[in-house]
Design a protein around this nucleic acid. Structure first.
Lengths: 217, 217
DNA sequence: CAAATATATGAACAACTGTTCATTATGTAG
DNA sequence: CTACATAATGAACAGTTGTTCATATATTTG
C-alpha cells in the first residue's frame, strides 16, 4: 500500500462517515434537527444526498450517533481529568477548576455545538433527556455532593445539606454556560458573563468556608 | 338575539382565533414549531386547515402572536404583583415570594407551555431571544440588583457586588424551573426539585444576611 | 489483471408541507 | 326578507421532504 493510497483511503471510506457527523452536528446545532434536511448536510459536504445512505440507515441514525457521542464528551465528563481520591483536600482550587471546565466548553467548537444540540433537542428527544439527566446532572451533582460531604468532615466548610450545596454550585454554572451560548448566537459580547464563572466560585467559597481564626478575637 | 345565538356566536368568530392560539401553543410546546403542521393544529381543533387562514396570514404569524404574549406573561413579570417602592424592607420574605412565583409557573398549564416554547425555540428565534434577554433576564436581574443594593445600604445584608448577587439568586431558580419542566415531560416526580426553590432562598439568605448580635459574644 | 467490495451518482418515488381560492354555509344589520 | 360580512370547506397547487435503487465509479484484495 503506497503512501498515496493511505491518504486517499483516509479521505474516503469511514472518513466520510465522520465528515457526515461533523457536518450534521454543525447544522443540527444551528438550525435544529427537524429543520436540517438531508440535502443540507450533503450540500455542505459537496456530495449528493443519496451518498449519505451508504453510511447511515437514515437521518435519525445520524442524530442517534451524535447523541451517543454526548456520553463521552467533555460536557458530561466534568470530573474526568480530576483525581477522584483526594479531591476534597484541594478545596476552592478544585471548585475553580470545575468552573473553568464549564467555561471552556463554551469556547471549544465541538463541545459548544454538542451543548447547543443538547439544549435544542432535550424537550423532543427522550434519549437526550436521559443522557442529560443521568450522565450530566445526576452524576455530577452526586460527585459534588460527595465532595462537599468530605469537605464538611474535614472541617473545611460549614456543615449542611451536601446535595443542596451541589445543586447551588452546579446550577449557576449551567446557567452561565447557556447564557454564553445564547450571546454568541447574536455575536454579542460574552465577557461579563464569562467573568461570572470565577465570581461564582469566589462568592460560593466565601459563603461555605469555615472562617480561619481571626486576630480580631 | 336568542340565547342560542349568543352561544354559537361565542363558539364562532374571534373565539376561534384564541382557540387556534391555545391549540398551537399546546402543540408547539410539545412537538416544537417546525414539527407541528398546520394540519395538526386544525385537526386538534376539529376543523380543516384552510379555516386557520381566515384568522392568521400564515403559520409564522401564529408563532409571532404567541411570542408576543410572552411579554405580558407571568414568566416575564416576576415582579409584577410586588410593591416596587419599599421592596427591600421585606428582606427574605420578598426573596421567598419571588422564588414561589418561579415555582408556580411550572404548575400553571399556560405558563408552563410558554416556558417550554421559549426554551425550545430560543436558539432558533431571534425575537424570542430578545424577549428572554431583555424582558426576562436583564429586567429581573436589574430589579434584583437594585433590591440588593438597597438592602446593603439598610445594612440588612453584607455589602458586595449587587449584580453578582442578583445573578446568583436568579440562576438556580431558572435552572430548577427547567428541571421541573423536563421531569414533568417524562412524568417523573418533581418533589425533590420543587423543594429546592425554598431551600435555595433559605441558604441564600443565610449567606448574605448580616448576623444579628449573638448572645455568645 | 480480475474479481470483489465499497462508495458515489442521478433519477425517481410517494408522502407531506404551507398556502390559495372558488364555493358553501352561517350569522348580522338594515 | 334581503344584503352583507364573516367563517368554514374541499380541492388543488407547487415545493420540499426522506428514502430507494439501478447504475457507474473507484478502491481493495487475491
Amino acid at each position: 500500500m503506497s503512501e498515496q493510497n493511505v491518504n486517499t483511503a483516509l479521505l474516503r471510506g469511514s472518513n466520510t462517515k465522520s465528515k457526515i457527523l461533523k457536518t450534521s452536528l454543525k447544522l443540527f446545532s444551528s438550525k435544529g434537527f427537524k429543520a436540517t434536511t438531508v440535502r443540507d448536510i450533503a450540500g455542505a459536504m459537496g456530495v449528493k444526498q443519496s451518498a449519505l445512505y451508504n453510511h447511515f440507515k437514515n437521518k435519525d441514525e445520524i442524530l442517534e450517533t451524535l447523541v451517543s457521542e454526548l456520553t463521552s464528551s467533555a460536557i458530561v465528563q466534568i470530573f474526568a481529568d480530576k483525581d477522584t481520591q483526594e479531591l476534597h483536600k484541594q478545596g476552592k482550587t478544585l471548585l475553580m477548576s470545575i468552573a473553568t471546565t464549564f467555561k471552556l466548553i463554551s469556547f471549544d467548537g465541538q463541545n459548544e455545538a454538542l451543548f447547543k444540540l443538547l439544549m435544542q433537542e432535550i424537550y423532543r428527544n427522550e434519549r437526550i433527556r436521559e443522557i442529560y439527566n443521568e450522565h450530566f446532572y445526576q452524576e455530577n451533582v452526586k460527585k459534588l455532593s460527595g465532595l462537599f460531604f468530605s469537605m464538611m468532615q474535614n472541617e473545611m466548610i460549614k456543615s449542611g445539606d451536601p446535595l443542596l450545596l451541589a445543586n447551588e454550585f452546579f446550577s449557576p454554572l449551567f446557567f452561565y454556560q447557556m447564557q454564553v451560548s445564547l450571546l454568541k448566537l447574536d455575536k454579542k459580547s460574552t465577557s461579563s458573563v464569562v467573568s461570572m464563572f470565577e465570581k461564582h466560585v469566589d462568592l460560593f467559597w466565601d459563603n461555605i468556608k469555615i472562617e480561619k481564626q481571626s486576630t480580631l478575637f
